[in-house]
Every structure is written in C-alpha cells, then in structure tokens.
Amino acid sequence: MASRVPCPHCGLRPKEEFTIKGAALPRPAPDAGEAAWIEYVYLRENPRGAYDEFWHHTSGCRRWLVVSRNTLTHDVYGARDVALGGETQP
C-alpha cells in the first residue's frame, strides 16, 4: 500500500521510510471529558476508502505528516506537514 508518499519536504519517498501512527485525530484538551479522551485513545473508524493518518518520515526529514490515502485502492491523495502544512500531491 502507498508505495510512495509525497513528503512536502522530501518529495516522493518509498513507504519503507515512514512510520505510521494511525488516525490523524486532534488531541482533546487536557480537561476534556472522559468520553472525548476514550474516543481519542481507543476508538477508530477503520473506514473503507479515504483516511487521514499521521505518518512520520522516519528515514527522511523526521517530520510528522498527515497522509490522506484510500484504504481500498491504496492511492495516496496527498500529504502535509502536521505543523507547517504545505499540502503536496503525488
């Protein structure tokens, strides 16, 4: 899946260079209710189709990216730096 990921800093790179954390969810506020935290820590959609995930360019620029990809077709729609943005398409 996702043979090559378009890192906004490094260009198209093979998936072997990345580490995947999982769903790109926002962290709740520290005082958010328990339900919000349970959702953040444990509950996942596991969709068939489009999905945004945190990917770390471990063997490259070491930036965390949000990679949008299709879990069914493996197509990668794009990637952006989680802090700096800079959406890039393959």
């Binding site: 770390h56 930036r63 730096d81 989680v82 802090a83």
Partner: peptide, 12 residues
Amino acid sequence: THLEFCAQALWP
C-alpha cells in the same frame, strides 16, 4: 519519534 510527535503535532 514520540518527542517529535509531541513537538510537531501536539505543541507546535
């Protein structure tokens, strides 16, 4: 990797 996540994704 975790520290980089904290620095970049949680508290940029």
